[in-house]
Design a protein around this nucleic acid. Sequence first.
DNA 1: GTCTATATGTCGATAGAC
DNA 2: GTCTATCGACATATAGAC
Lengths: 195, 195
Amino acid sequence: MARTQGSHSGITGPRVRDAALKLFAQHGYAAVSMRQIAREVGVQAGALYNYTPDKQSLLFDLMQTHMTELLAACADMPDGGPPIEALENFTSLHLRFHSERPEEVFIAYMELRNLTPENFTKIEALRRSYEDGLETILRSGVSSGDFEVSDPKIATMAVIAMLTGVNTWFREGGRLSLEEVEQIYWDMVRKAVGA
Amino acid sequence: MARTQGSHSGITGPRVRDAALKLFAQHGYAAVSMRQIAREVGVQAGALYNYTPDKQSLLFDLMQTHMTELLAACADMPDGGPPIEALENFTSLHLRFHSERPEEVFIAYMELRNLTPENFTKIEALRRSYEDGLETILRSGVSSGDFEVSDPKIATMAVIAMLTGVNTWFREGGRLSLEEVEQIYWDMVRKAVGA
DNA sequence: GTCTATATGTCGATAGAC
DNA sequence: GTCTATCGACATATAGAC
């Protein structure tokens, strides 16, 4: 099957996405130019516009894909078990999912203000949906008497902030394995909610 | 005392600082131009260079001042008491200090990568010093048998992340007062470290 | 101390050849 | 699909008049 020389449809697209992911995470959306992204991919700047209508869409797609995959992973969790198991599953999922995608996570938290208002609203809704998942677990644990939480909404924010903070220091091959980190954090989360 | 018309030494300087603080926090360092800062202050762009050698120094000064004031506030804390009191003092100080300075806190966490390597090293050292303060408290509590913490360094990062996360949602005049928030977080911190 | 004007360079995005 | 070339706007920082 002959191909037009220089044609890389289906391969250059993902490379543009990967380059944007890497560079946005490293230097920040506003500090990265389309020319930098093109250089990373190995094409000229003009060629990028075959794969994205503009720079903003590049950012939005990265964030939307990330949040959608996170919510899909949540939906795959077993449910129906006792609240303490649901909370342990949530903790484990959050730590694993986030540690596997440090660049996506970094962008999702740091570049919210560089989204257009319309795009911000969409991403914010996805994030809120994720938080609601944890809040539901905490409320069910309070109802069943398994948890001692005075304010489930605050506890939700506190637990997510604590878990997401792992990304600021955790590196594979460091002092602790991910499994050890999971154990330590689950211990703190469990105690913090009085379980 | 006659003054040269247009001379505002001692007043324009702080206004430049305040404008940079506000705009960097709102849009991000890389996205803010010197012209925007000048417009906010009410002068032309060229006049800014009477108060700062360049844009980078504006950012560095904001972060350095913030971290230095944080460490000074820590140094003013009473010490010598039992670990649980030291931890409660730390929690209270962190929440109050950070809630009073949302813009400085935001910049200190978001703009680290926009510092030159030399400036980054200096700010990083100040941040590390702050973390060491909490770690020392946790270790002393473990030694005295007041805390149950398997890894003081991880617990330090977890507590700071949890507390700093308050800034992402807390607004004065909202559902909860700062005092209520302090109470809820102290309860979670206390339980998380097994005190 | 602030102004206007400018040097020098980069930006996002597009047009048209191949 | 990628290239070169370019438009118009904007960036940081400086020079020199007042």
